[in-house]
Amino acid sequence: MSRIEKITPAPLLSVRNLSKRYGSRIGCTDVSFDLWPGEVLGIVGESGSGKSTLLSCLAGHLAPDGGEVVFATVNGPQDTLRMSEPDRRRLARTDWAFVHQNPRDGLRMGVTAGGNVGERLMAVGTRNYGSIRDAATDWLGRVEIDANRIDDRPSAFSGGMQQRLQIARNLVTGPRLVFMDEPTGGLDVSVQARLLDLLRGLVREMGLSAIIVTHDLAVVRLLADRLMVMKSGHVVEQGLTDQVLDDPQHPYTQLLVSSVLQV
């Protein structure tokens, strides 16, 4: 029995005709897709292609001009763009998670690692110090940070550790959908590999769905089940990750794939 069939046969996220303009410029336009439970969707494209705008619109950080972002909440499908703000913020700290490219944007740099991981637990009402501490220790272990670093501040951590801490902080409440903006950007390659492996394991074990924005095709090949290619705010091609990369159909995708330097 597969992980996917154990869950309801409905998309976790249904996006329809999502559009965002900056004045006369197009941020992203007419984006539609379904994300199913357990799936990892990669969004690639060069700088300025609208992939970060799209991610911000999906995660509710930016108000799109039109369209729908329907999420399968515990109370049934709901358009998150038309949700009340309290509901959307609650969603953002329970069922959703957002991993920023720069861990400084996603961490509280003045708060210890344990406090960073525990914040979401406290936000949903956990009031037992011991259990918060245990959960934080457990999660530090899962993201391969030594437990004796629990009372250190992230400013004392390396870039890779900060990024792993950010992931722990986001996943501690067991979200169902994670948005990631260039999660491996700014890390050196050996640290990237470790992070990718970690993310794959977590996605598999927790049945997570994820939307990952990146310009690194090697990252999506290893992480993403499906791929969406964006150019000038439009989705020009989407499909199975390996199919899009190995048999690209759109001229831009062909250019993108052929431009990658081979090691």
């Binding site: 996917i4 799936e39 089940d225 499906r226 499909g239 199975l240 199919q243």
Partner: peptide
């Protein structure tokens, strides 16, 4: 795509 993924899985 998701049907192909399921096919490859199982």
């Amino acid at each position: 795509p998701r049907d192909i993924l399921a096919l490859r899985r199982e």
